[in-house]
Design a binder for these strands. Structure first.
Lengths: 205, 205
DNA sequence: ATATTTGTTAACCATTTGGTTAAACAATAT
DNA sequence: ATATTGTTTAACCAAATGGTTAACAAATAT
């Protein structure tokens, strides 16, 4: 195969390598040389496509955050009834993250290092997470008496916890219980149905 | 105050500084100079007390993990009935972590970088987390018919998710909802009772 | 008092790391 | 064919970083 024939553009090769390295090692632990090696190219070429480490990192981080947050928001804002929303959220979110199981810990961890900076960087207005409508919807159901008197915020936290946390604790669970990739996958597939059932059983009158 | 009169021993001053820096920046992001500065001493003195960065980090990491894991295990193993166990776990765990809210993300994130290494480092036999008894206990209750037919593993995951995740998402929640330290604290205090109620409502027949 | 051990520092060193440069190489335009 | 533009590399550089050294100061033993 000729040296300069490439199915993936070089830029995408770098992105792919950077994704892998940044996600595994974080912004500080990642080395530009690692990224170049992973992409099978010269380090200077990484700088040719992306000005510097910070810029490349931001690209990767924004991409990752962009996979996680808008989806939450879309469901928060939609017009469906509460229970359907909960079901849909679990279904969709677990599907997305199963395809990139490392995303939540990566994003949460990096955000933790400088929440204010990332918060501004991420949501310059548009796709900022806005759970207001979802919270109001819960309150309405409480008022209607269809569900128990429940703090909307607590319920929101429960939904997010049950859905996202397993991905964050994944390595520990896998080591502790000796389960492999496939078993974890099946466990999470099961959870798509289990979580809504669990929540609804807990809150419905 | 004389130069060599110290209320805290130097070693503890270093540990304290290292805790702060490592937890904020992680193993790779932390700089020995930062730690020395934070402790108000010369960098060489850090090396005098702790051979190198790796050793110091392990000290801090083991200490952090030691605050989180044995407590889980103690409750898993104890003889109490299931519902009491769940209540006790939430109560105790949230109390511990409220005193060090940064611990879960720190430990989970570092473990993620090399799960096998940390797993061996941490649990050379004794305090290895062992949820077996807890899982059996759930199965017993299912068999007795006191709770719904529920996968023990799913229930365990639910308990851990609901308890631990809020601390991991803390910065995002605080920014998104504009809540301060005190409000978060109160929210988690409320959760000590809310989580067991939530779980028990969901699983009891 | 004095020798010895322990604690602390400033200066230094080797290596790593992000980033640059200049030249070679390929593709494209003329 | 040749000039021009865009892509890639090897070699290099300055700054940062983990770690060491040698000397000095304090505490302790003799």
């Amino acid at each position: 195969m000729s040296k300069y024939k490439k199915d993936k553009t070089t830029e995408e090769k770098i992105m792919e390598a950077a994704r892998k390295v940044f996600v595994r090692k974080g912004m500080y632990g990642a080395r530009m040389q690692d990224i170049a090696d992973e992409a099978g190219i010269n380090k200077a070429l990484v700088h040719y496509y992306f000005k510097n480490k910070q810029k490349l990192f931001e690209e990767i981080f924004m991409e990752a955050a962009g996979k996680l947050f808008p989806r939450v928001n879309a469901i928060f804002i939609s017009e469906e009834p509460l229970f359907a929303k909960i079901e849909k959220f679990c279904e969709e979110y677990i599907s997305v993250v199963l395809a990139n199981p490392y995303l939540p810990l990566f994003v949460l961890n990096e955000m933790n290092q400088d929440p204010v900076y990332f918060f501004n960087k991420l949501w310059s207005g548009k796709q900022r997470p806005n759970p207001q409508k979802f919270l109001e919807q819960i309150q309405e159901e409480v008022n209607k008496g269809t569900i128990k008197n429940f703090s909307p915020l607590q319920l929101l936290m429960n939904l997010l916890s049950l859905t996202i946390f397993p991905f964050i604790g994944k390595p520990i669970f896998q080591m502790t219980l000796g389960i492999d990739e496939l078993q974890f996958r099946m466990f999470m597939e099961q959870r798509k149905k289990e979580i809504p059932k669990f929540i609804i059983d807990a809150i419905k009158k």
